[in-house]
Design a protein around this nucleic acid. Structure first.
Lengths: 233, 233
DNA sequence: CACGTAAGTTAGTATTCACTTACCAAGCAA
DNA sequence: TTGCTTGGTAAGTGAATACTAACTTACGTG
């Protein structure tokens, strides 16, 4: 008997891994591996055999924990929704909203979106796949997660319009625009490994928030041009 | 022998369809059906048997036209790229750019994005799938199609910044923002069947373009508030 | 140490999948 | 009619796939 247990010493990826895990641990390991695999190739693109192999375990073990492949898939979203704890983030957002600190409010939410999507690359891809494949679970996730964000954003923008701080924009359209910018940023990074626009979440969030708040046009009061319909050269 | 050929009389969807098509026609029909199916369930989610059944033909016919399933998949993108003819659109865009008609320029491009994505629902989903599944063909499509758009937009914005008409924004960031808005709009419509923000392409494009150009903030010159850091309460 | 429980294995099974082979018949030109 | 090209079919083939049944081994506890 070698005295020390395997711990972290194993190779890492195709590792046959340690034997005799506790049920709980094994289950979590399988869910983790399945998430990565499904996020890479979609539900029907991955075999249970593959997952078992990566976990260093026989296929039958997977079916001890999950009755069907579908159930394993569902378990991924289940666990993610349990893990998701954005309480601190929401507290900050409510504070910024109360202080009417528009710029920091939008920068923070955009930065948060970029950070989360970058950190949780696999899960984002998985959500895409599941949305495309029409799994009800993705729908549920969007209803619970995205809906909240959009409602919150929409309400804030609506308030600021009423207060006269914002122009008479449609709050829903504005909220969607706001979300679209950092979202597409990370989507491009992840889908096409696009590197044309890079930067830290802070930097990017500042740039996007500036466009969202101020627009790209130079306001009419600027020294150069009047806002007359068009300067035809 | 019934005198009249089947023509269009057949049921429509699970139709065994007409017999003895010309090779060319059959090929196109198969590509059309495959596109719809792949766009619904992804590459590995669809069987060649399914496609054959919908075409009202035996599986072997598919493999007469396409050596492998992969080749059929590739043929879809191939044909789409041949069909795509945006010459008129580009001419209009160049004209608007030359006239420095910023608002119409951006409204037109956003409207175009919404229209195309709405009209070509299946193909958009297919592109998503293929991007996620990492098919090289999707990469090719994006390099040829999206790259052009972004370069064109980036160049125009850069020019307008130099001319002093736009604020000192990063052209790439601005171009991406611009694209993100109508793109996410249709993505939500298609992925979640979301109906919170509806409207014709024109209406939506106007709303999004206004945010992009003018921002949501009311400019400091407005009667209500000065641009001082924050109006607490 | 016995011993029961839970983690793990081996070796299937039925079915489905992409793809093939060998044959058939519709149309058309000579 | 003959013959030949071409669109079409029937019936497979071997490899995978999700999932199962029956058996084995590690481990904590009375």
């Amino acid at each position: 008997m070698t005295s020390a247990p395997p711990t972290v010493a194993t190779a890492s990826l195709p590792a046959p891994a340690s034997r005799r895990m506790s049920g709980e641990d094994r289950r979590r390991q399988i869910v983790r591996i399945a998430m990565r695999r499904f996020s890479e190739k979609g539900f029907s693109g991955v075999t249970t055999k593959e997952i078992a192999a990566e976990a260093g375990v026989s296929e039958a073990i997977i079916f001890r924990h999950f009755a069907t492949k579908q159930e394993l898939y569902a378990a991924i979203l289940d666990q993610k929704m349990k893990d998701a704890d954005a309480a601190a983030f929401w507290a900050l957002m409510r504070e910024l909203a109360a202080r009417r600190d528009d710029r920091r409010f939008f920068e923070t939410i955009m930065q948060h979106i970029i950070e989360r999507h970058r950190a949780d690359y696999s899960f984002q891809r998985l959500l895409f796949f599941s949305a495309l494949e029409g799994h009800e679970l993705s729908e549920m996730f969007f209803r619970l997660y995205a809906r909240d964000i959009f409602d919150f954003l929409g309400d804030y923008i609506e308030t600021r319009v009423r207060e006269g701080a914002f122009r008479e924009v449609n709050p829903q359209v504005a909220a969607r625009s706001l979300f679209a910018m950092p979202f597409l940023q990370t989507m491009f990074e992840q889908l096409h490994r696009d590197q044309t626009v890079t930067g830290s979440p802070e930097t990017l969030a500042r740039a996007y928030a500036a466009i969202f708040l101020d627009g790209v046009s130079r306001p009419a009061t600027a020294p150069t041009a009047k806002s007359s319909p068009a300067r035809t050269s």
